[in-house]
């Protein structure tokens, strides 16, 4: 099969920053906001998404010759649902407290648009190696987004980072508790999105200034 579309390396790099699933494409927001009150659930969630994304991408890439156009979304969803069930059972067996803390958000990975969009855009069209690289890239990009939000929320809300005390003044009763609650998720997400856009714009302007001085 002729290689059309981006190569494995391009897919991997693109997934992390240029096409970051959360900040650039605004996909998969429900768990992003729900699990980022602290670092540990965010890490667990990122791991679960990595597992499901890699497995689903590999399987869909292997069966891409058999897919019928009108049934492909159904096949993607059922594939993802199977791997999510496996991930959910594994979490319940080995990380029970995390599984309890994440609650319904692990099964909600099934309807996470990130994974369906990767199946549709990449793995149903390209080979296994590219699909794996793409899955890792996108999952790392997703983890980056989750951890950046969780860092802000946990430090401001609890004064800790990964349960290690970093801000002695905001611990216990003095925490900024709105950050742990749901409004904090929306506010931090909005501000980080604005920050991201600002940095991006400055970098674009810098490039423009370097290539065309005096323009």
């Amino acid at each position: 099969m002729a290689m059309n579309g981006p190569t494995a390396t391009e897919r991997f790099v693109n997934g992390i920053l240029p096409e970051n699933p959360v900040y650039r494409q605004l996909l998969g927001l429900c768990p992003t906001l729900a699990v980022t009150a602290a670092m540990k659930p965010a890490l667990t969630m990122a791991g679960a998404v990595l597992f499901v994304l890699v497995c689903a991408n590999v399987l869909v890439s292997l069966i891409r010759g058999l897919l019928k156009p009108h049934l492909r979304i159904l096949v993607f969803t059922l594939t993802i649902a199977t791997f999510v069930t496996i991930a959910d059972r594994l979490l319940a067996a080995y990380l029970y407290s995390m599984s309890k803390a994440l609650g319904p958000y692990v099964p909600l990975i099934i309807v996470n648009c990130i994974i369906i969009s990767r199946c549709e855009i990449c793995s149903s069209k390209q080979g296994v190696v590219t699909a794996i690289a793409d899955a890792f890239g996108v999952a790392f990009g997703y983890a980056l987004a989750l951890l950046s939000i969780a860092t802000v929320r946990e430090i401001l809300g609890r004064g800790t980072w990964l349960d290690i005390p970093v801000m002695p003044l905001t611990q216990g009763d003095y925490g900024w508790s709105v950050m742990i609650l749901s409004p904090g998720a929306f506010l931090v997400m909005g501000l980080l999105l604005g920050l991201w856009n600002w940095v991006e714009k400055r970098r674009a302007r810098g490039r423009l200034g370097a290539s065309a001085p005096g323009a």
């Binding site: 605004l26 409004p183 904090g184 929306f186 506010l187 997400m189 909005g190 501000l191 999105l193 604005g194």
Partner: peptide, 9 residues
Amino acid sequence: PGIVFIVAG
């Protein structure tokens, strides 16, 4: 989307 998130918050 940025301002929408702030309003939602």
